[in-house]
């Protein structure tokens, strides 16, 4: 049984900068869980993604540093060229091989989230032209966490949400603008 709100993990690829912007802009500063994000981008892609997302969000959006403590009210972004992982309460980075041609990899992040937070994890798959994230979301589901997939029809690229839905019997399939309110509600009520 899901018990809500230890951590929110989001994965996005093509179209993700816009989609993440929409979600983060609607999340209040007092969301009781930290947010961790793997957004695919080029190895030396713009370092400026955190400020771009942060400008429109009440959360403090920062690029992850190794072993940094996680805090509510913050969103931590996987740096380009690194996998982002978590353990309870803290971030970890690795430069291991790409997975499904991606580093950061959503599967790697979600797998670590499932392992560390189990039924307190919420996993969200957004738009993308990749299969990354499907296996990771399945891991979160399998460990008792809550799974959310962006309604593919509302995604800029539907392949990633489609792949996630093929792999997981997701708890919720939501339009982009319904995701933040749902997260807020779950975290307030402690269950879906």
């Amino acid at each position: 049984m899901t018990t809500g709100c230890g951590i929110v993990a989001m994965g996005a690829s093509w179209g993700g900068v816009h989609a993440l912007g929409v979600v983060l802009a609607a999340v209040p500063a007092d969301l009781p869980a930290p947010v961790v994000i793997a957004q695919h981008r080029g190895e030396d892609g713009p370092a400026g993604l955190a400020p771009v997302l942060g400008r429109r969000s009440a959360l403090r959006v920062v690029e992850a540093t190794d072993k940094q403590a996680m805090r509510a009210g913050h969103a931590y972004l996987a740096p380009p060229g690194y996998h982002l992982l978590v353990e309870r309460g803290a971030l970890a980075l690795s430069t291991d091989e790409k997975e499904r041609f991606s580093r950061p990899s959503i599967d790697v992040l979600f797998d670590s989230v499932a392992s560390a937070y189990a039924e307190e994890a919420i996993g969200v798959i957004l738009t993308g032209a990749s299969d990354d994230g499907a296996a990771g979301l399945a891991r979160i589901r399998h460990s008792g966490g809550l799974t959310v997939v962006q309604e593919p029809a509302t995604a800029e690229r539907r392949r990633m949400p489609d792949a996630a839905l093929a792999a997981v019997n997701a708890h919720r399939i939501l339009a982009l603008d319904e995701i933040a309110p749902f997260l807020v509600k779950v975290c307030a009520e402690g269950g879906p």
Partner: peptide
């Protein structure tokens, strides 16, 4: 990530 990992009850066992 092909294989399903152990379920949550066994998380502490994994550690």
């Amino acid at each position: 990530m092909a294989e399903p990992r152990p379920p949550v009850r066994r998380r502490d066992l994994e550690a």
